[in-house]
Amino acid sequence: MIYCLMVPKMTDDAVRRRRIAFGKRLRTLRAEAGKSQAEVAAAAGTDRSFYVGVEAGYRNISIDKVFLIADALGVDVALLFSDLPGRADRTRMNS
Rank of each mutant, 00 (worst) to 15 (best):
81 F>S: 02
71 D>F: 09
92 R>M: 12
77 V>M: 02
63 I>Y: 04
29 L>Q: 02
6 M>G: 04
93 M>P: 01
76 D>K: 12
46 T>P: 00
58 Y>H: 15
60 N>F: 00
49 S>Y: 02
74 G>C: 00
40 V>H: 01
3 Y>C: 12
52 V>D: 01
80 L>Q: 06
48 R>I: 04
66 V>I: 15
71 D>M: 11
27 R>T: 03
64 D>Q: 15
37 Q>A: 06
55 E>C: 00
35 K>G: 05
24 K>V: 03
54 V>L: 03
81 F>W: 12
63 I>T: 13
65 K>P: 01
34 G>F: 06
25 R>S: 10
1 M>K: 11
11 T>S: 14
34 G>N: 07
59 R>T: 02
42 A>T: 15
73 L>P: 00
47 D>S: 11
28 T>I: 11
85 P>A: 09
62 S>V: 04
65 K>E: 03
42 A>S: 15
81 F>N: 00
91 T>E: 14
85 P>F: 15
45 G>N: 02
90 R>D: 10
8 P>V: 10
24 K>R: 14
87 R>Q: 13
87 R>I: 15
18 R>C: 06
5 L>E: 10
36 S>N: 08
92 R>K: 14
51 Y>K: 01
76 D>S: 14
85 P>T: 05
82 S>A: 14
35 K>W: 04
84 L>K: 05
73 L>V: 09
69 I>F: 00
23 G>Y: 03
61 I>L: 15
95 S>N: 13
4 C>Y: 10
39 E>Y: 01
45 G>C: 08
35 K>F: 01
67 F>N: 13
71 D>V: 07
35 K>C: 01
49 S>Q: 12
78 A>G: 13
53 G>S: 06
60 N>T: 13
22 F>G: 06
39 E>A: 11
16 R>H: 07
78 A>K: 11
69 I>W: 03
68 L>Q: 15
16 R>A: 09
80 L>C: 09
51 Y>F: 13
42 A>F: 08
64 D>K: 07
86 G>M: 14
21 A>K: 05
35 K>Y: 02
90 R>E: 08
15 V>M: 12
12 D>S: 05
11 T>V: 08
75 V>Q: 02
54 V>A: 02
82 S>I: 07
39 E>T: 09
13 D>G: 12
5 L>I: 14
38 A>C: 03
52 V>F: 05
15 V>C: 05
63 I>G: 09
90 R>L: 14
89 D>R: 15
40 V>W: 03
20 I>V: 14
66 V>A: 13
90 R>N: 08
11 T>I: 06
24 K>E: 14
95 S>L: 15
70 A>F: 04
33 A>L: 00
34 G>I: 08
65 K>T: 10
68 L>S: 14
66 V>D: 01
8 P>L: 07
29 L>C: 08
5 L>C: 03
66 V>R: 05
38 A>E: 15
40 V>Q: 01
77 V>W: 06
44 A>I: 06
7 V>M: 11
79 L>K: 10
37 Q>P: 04
20 I>L: 15
93 M>L: 11
53 G>I: 07
77 V>K: 07
90 R>P: 03
75 V>P: 04
2 I>C: 04
22 F>E: 01
56 A>N: 12
13 D>Q: 07
79 L>S: 10
81 F>T: 10
20 I>M: 04
91 T>H: 12
85 P>L: 10
82 S>D: 14
93 M>Y: 11
92 R>L: 12
79 L>W: 04
49 S>M: 11
3 Y>H: 09
8 P>K: 13
15 V>T: 08
76 D>Y: 05
6 M>Y: 06
